[in-house]
């Protein structure tokens, strides 16, 4: 049993995250699952689990975020993932800066002021390039487990140039490179570089204000962090649970 005073749920394209916070706003409890097609059923089930977890029977606020936030019928409030990620990261790291959130379906660069408010943002929501889907697609094609994509890419210094920014064309390009005998590690390194270059272009549109922070599921990939540092020349800071920052920020907004 946990002292939970507010819940935040982030219904993302790849995973669903639910976070409970205590009265002081500390992350007290969380669950993370792959997203199911029947969002309402999954949300109801997760809320039942949360209900059993909390120490009091009192009704507590539930704030929904993520692309499926509109389907969380039980929500007392719905807030976009941009505001929620900013709130969650600011609360944990205690400073503003430039936050990069690379999700499964889109990516965002968010400028956060010293008070924790969103100053500006840029989103890539039109195609899979620059998102987790870009890496997932290639992982499947190369038969490399998703969690190994970063370590494999960092296992070499050789790098193949991937010139296509479109995920579909990049996949064709990868197939062509494999056919020409390029090493898998070098291809994956080049692929990560391609993704990071798109993210850096977005950072430029918003303007880089240090420190650079990273959240979202893709933040767990070590190659992303390293290459982002290489390309921007700025150190990259990660919160303890980068994937939970949206749900955490949502829960904080419920307090």
């Amino acid at each position: 049993m946990t002292d939970i005073r507010a819940l935040g749920i982030d219904v993302g394209s790849t995973t669903v995250k639910i976070v409970g916070v205590d009265a002081a706003g500390n992350l007290a409890w969380h669950l993370l699952e792959p997203a199911e097609p029947r969002v309402e059923d999954q949300v109801t089930r997760l809320l039942d689990i949360a209900d059993r977890e909390k120490s009091s029977d009192a009704k507590i606020p539930l704030v929904a975020t993520g692309y499926g936030r509109g389907l969380v019928l039980q929500a007392t409030r719905r807030v976009t993932e941009i505001t929620c990620h900013a709130r969650g990261v600011y609360r944990e790291l205690r400073h503003g800066g430039t936050l990069v959130d690379i999700g499964g379906q889109d990516s965002k660069v968010i400028a956060i002021d010293p008070q924790g408010d969103v100053l500006d943002f840029a989103m890539n929501d039109k195609c899979a390039a620059g998102t987790g889907r870009f890496i997932e697609n290639t992982a499947r094609r190369m038969h490399v487990p998703l969690e190994q994509m970063g370590p494999v890419a960092l296992a070499t210094t050789a790098e193949v140039l991937i010139s296509s920014t479109c995920t579909v064309f990049a996949e064709s390009e990868v197939i062509s490179l494999v056919a020409h005998g390029a090493a898998v590690e070098a291809i994956l390194r080049g692929l990560h570089r391609s993704l990071i270059k798109r993210i850096v272009a977005m950072i430029r549109t918003v303007g880089l204000v240090s420190p650079l922070m990273l959240s979202g599921g893709v933040a767990q990939n070590p190659a992303i962090r390293k290459m982002l540092e290489e390309e921007t020349g700025a150190p990259v800071i990660l919160p303890q649970h980068p994937q939970l920052m949206g749900a955490y920020g949502a829960a904080l907004m419920g307090l």
Binding site: Y67, G70, V79, T80, E81, I82, T83, D106, D117, V118, L119, D120, F121, M123, D125, K126
Partner: peptide, 14 residues
């Protein structure tokens, strides 16, 4: 689209 909605909504929140 949901993407367009999120973009506008985040802007309004901002």
């Amino acid at each position: 689209s949901q993407q367009a909605r999120t973009r506008v909504e985040a802007f309004i929140e901002m």
